[in-house]
Design a binder for these strands. Structure first.
Lengths: 306, 306
DNA sequence: GAATCCTCGTCATACGTATTACTGAATCCT
DNA sequence: AGGATTCAGTAATACGTATGACGAGGATTC
């Protein structure tokens, strides 16, 4: 029994080249001896590694964990490894420290500005500007905002305050547009960082106006928590005096009182879809840009205006 | 110029074997041509991969992201790659799907029951039972609980309710003991899942007693959020009528109203320390079990009893 | 002055696989 | 019957590195 035969059989290329009973014998022996083809030798011979890089932002919100999980599961199912690479927010487009030859492709999440300088490696972006020169798998933020707008419109709201996360120029614009389309001329916007204290301050400014909005639309659940604090400071009841909505549906949403009306994002599915797209790209196919719909979750923080 | 010489120089083993000016020439040429030793060939020759596995629980709290970040940074600095492996909570001690020969060691976080069946691979555990047969890097939960107990004792509390996370036998015992030592005979304990709704229910049971505790010690910030809800349902003011403490200091802690007194855990440092320990283990040294102290953060949810 | 040692490199080999080219036997076609 | 074709498997090779064995020339020692 020659080494070549074993290699052919175990690679599944035995069709018409190796007699079925011999195939059986090979598999049998391999199982009995616990033999597994040496990975390093195979990589050397084939010039492949079946490994992709996962670039992760340092800011570790609860959404990212879910994204990694989804991505890693798909990769494992296809026999790929996933190498982690933390990417500090302030880092420029510096190349990865991880040796690029150890990697076949890159899956990057929330890279601000859509930086894509990974040499010639195939890249798929998650949660990034779709104008970037790489396939992009995104949450459908516009659709989510439209769902929120429709919900508030149905309740009878007319004056909307928008607490906008200003970290990302692309979503800043998309979210603003979606809201402005639904409530033309009656949206006041205030930019804020994704941070409870900053959001509280921003919300106070919106609520201090003479034409106080009856609902605050927040780009993130954390921002909504800041809005809650502002409302309490002004002695405004939620949802009696003021409706508030969030975005993401992280655990915080149900921990708040009253529980937050928000949009649930399919984070794990985003990771899985993006990894699938990357593996397609490695196969030479061209994956389609995809937008994953969130789901409006109506809880107790929205009601008709006073 | 032979290939051997280049290999020797670039491996840094040129001391006394290669003349300095030749060394210079090699480095110069390598830089000019952008030459990097082929990783697959090196792995094949040396039988090493400089890659470790990071086993991550599916439940993706905000703490885990920080742990991964710390671990991956240390690994990158030492030239190691980190392969992600999600580990569903309900999975038994099944072996990793990732080919064990692709990996030199395993860093596992929060493995329930301290399962360590990764064949002969070196393992370091994070946030697990220190009785497990592997080096363990832990948060000092006992110390954190003692800090909370001291704080509450100083405020004058005598009757303590303990909302205990029941997911892990080891911490369940350690936390209970630390609290019982500080308040002998005056702690009532109620087990709960780490879940807002479950915690609310458990808190209600504690607060319904004739000898109602004046402070609720919660094993997790999320549980504390449940306690907040129970207090509101019973019309108890925090911290006027009831003091509440959490654990972890996740973002939620400052989003709640009033802001939560809790213990901040050095999650990123945990990941970094554990990775350092694993790399030591790979070097043949025996890392010391380590316990990382948290820091009591006093906010607005604790006050003297009524 | 010969024997020994040191310096600076080079040669040759092995790691374990995938694949191309090949071979011997059996079967088929006319 | 004899050449062509198919079947089933083997031999040989290349991937690129690290390293132990080897060697040539010069310096040192007694």
């Amino acid at each position: 029994m020659s080494q070549s035969t074993v290699s052919i059989v175990l690679a599944g290329k035995a069709e018409g080249r190796v007699k079925p009973e011999t195939r059986q014998a090979v598999h049998e022996a391999a199982r009995r001896l616990g033999y597994r083809p040496n990975l390093a030798a195979r990589n050397l011979r084939l010039g492949r590694t079946r490994t992709v890089l996962l670039v992760v932002p340092t800011l570790t919100g609860p959404v990212f964990g879910a994204i990694y999980t989804g991505a890693a599961e798909v990769a494992a199912a296809r026999g790929f490894g996933v190498v982690l690479h933390p990417w500090p927010d302030d880092a420029g487009p510096a190349r990865s420290q991880v040796d690029t030859q150890a990697i076949e492709g890159v899956l990057a999440s929330s890279i601000v500005g859509g930086v894509t300088d990974f040499g010639d490696l195939p890249v798929v972006l998650m949660d990034s500007d779709p104008a970037a020169p790489a396939p992009t798998i995104n949450f459908d933020v516009a659709g989510g905002m439209r769902a929120i707008a429709a919900h508030l419109a149905e309740l009878g709201h007319r004056r909307i305050g928008h607490l906008a996360a200003s970290v990302d120029a692309w979503t800043f614009r998309v979210r603003g547009d979606a809201l402005a389309d639904a409530f033309p001329g009656s949206v006041v916007r205030q930019a804020t960082a994704i941070d409870v204290a900053a959001a509280r301050q921003a919300a106070l400014e919106l609520l201090d106006r003479s034409d106080r909005p009856s609902a605050l639309v927040c780009d993130d659940d954390l921002i909504a928590a800041g809005a809650y604090k502002a409302a309490r400071a002004l002695n405004l009841g939620i949802p009696g005096d003021l409706s508030v909505t969030g975005f993401d549906d992280v655990l915080l949403a149900t921990a708040l009182e009253p529980e937050l009306t928000t949009v649930r994002l399919p984070a794990e599915q985003l990771g899985a879809t993006a990894m699938t797209a990357l593996l397609e790209l490695l196969d030479g196919r061209r994956p389609a840009d995809t937008s994953l719909a969130g789901q409006l979750v109506v809880r107790a923080s929205t009601a008709p205006p006073p």
